[in-house]
Write a protein that binds this DNA or RNA. Sequence first.
DNA 1: AAAGTACTCAACCGCGATTGT
DNA 2: TACAATCGCGGTTGAGTACTT
Length: 315
Amino acid sequence: MGRAPCCDKATVKRGPWSPEEDATLKAYIEKHGTGGNWIALPHKIGLKRCGKSCRLRWLNYLRPNIKHGGFSVEEDHIICSLYSSIGSRWSIIAAQLPGRTDNDIKNHWNTRLKKKLLGKPREPPQPRCLSVNQVSTEVANAMSLQTHPQTLSAPALERMQLRGCEDPFFYHHPLGDKLFEDQHTDTSTSTTPIDSSHRRLLQVKQEIQILLNQTVQENMDCSVPGCPPSDAGGLAESSFSDCNSLVAGLSDLHEIFHGKEPFLGLQEANQSTESDCFKEMYREKERDGMSLWSSMASSLHPDSVLQEYLLGYDL
DNA sequence: AAAGTACTCAACCGCGATTGT
DNA sequence: TACAATCGCGGTTGAGTACTT
């Protein structure tokens, strides 16, 4: 049994939008708004389109102030830096680039930036987690795994290549120079694109840092001894929903810094959740006092990200 | 000029999260 | 509280175009 489709594919038109369809959708939304129901919208205006398709068309193409193509050096810089920090959270990255859509940024990354930075097509992705049956084998090969980065997931590898191990913002990294070397020749003035890019990056970094620090602190406060355990074992559920979205990236970084130890495999063997993984990682932090975690705490600032995201989608 | 290949990007798909009843 | 409808996201696809041989 698969999931029920959101619309009847037999009666719904698919494929590229015609100018007439665009005009109909745009005129209606500009006059009446979306009405808070994309599924009903195409029926109201007589479009034989799926509601999701209407939403996508509006958000990615028809809404005002959309920019297409022609990514600036500064934008490339921000995309690469945020990707190296938070991975493929395209909507979050898009929130930092007014007028850009997540789809545009995703396409731009996949077709241009990734190739430019990494210089070759990505390898097929490796499984994120080990199966129960694989665990003992993986334990036996732990040392080998830790010394062979090709066993990491492809996104983790990409980000490892992008990221300096000590400096989470890669513009201090040679790879950053590689990306921008062709535009980086004019250093005679103080208002080069690189300078403004650096300023913007620092601003974004600060914004992101503050809230994740708050989120991390909030969770740490509830995971220390003496704090009454929540149903999930100590972490506040409300803020944890925010943190869950970070876990994939954190796991990637765990791979980067620790290799594929039994950590992930045992997580699956014990039917643990990603939240459990995260909690375990916090325990590691407490044990090791590793600077890694403070640097990772500079990765996200959900509130400011949300603000900019909402502004970007202002109707 | 034709055929083959690579690239781009709009659109689709499916899933988890959220909201409404 | 349970369920269904809808939203929003990231991954993927494929048609059209550009480039190469």
